[in-house]
Amino acid sequence: MRVNEAGWDRVLRVVLGIVLLVLGWGGIVSGGWGTVFKILGFVPLLTGLVGWCPLYALLKVRTNKA
């Protein structure tokens, strides 16, 4: 599993994930959207932390240098 995200991409994903998780788990957004954020937030967070995006791999794109 080779890293396919650039540094800026990873930071952006982690920030987005944290924002979604805070909105969901912090109770700022409640109801259906709150639940969606609680789960969806982990996706950009984990792909950002690992540095590998399965969608990029599927589409054969990358934001870092090969």
């Binding site: 930071v11 998780l21 805070v22 788990w25 967070l45 950002g48 932390l49 540095g51």
Partner: peptide, 21 residues
Amino acid sequence: LMERLLRLVSGTVILALGWSN
């Protein structure tokens, strides 16, 4: 260093969210 910071920051936020929930 960037990876360490990303892990530290996100880990701390998740830990705090867990504590407050």
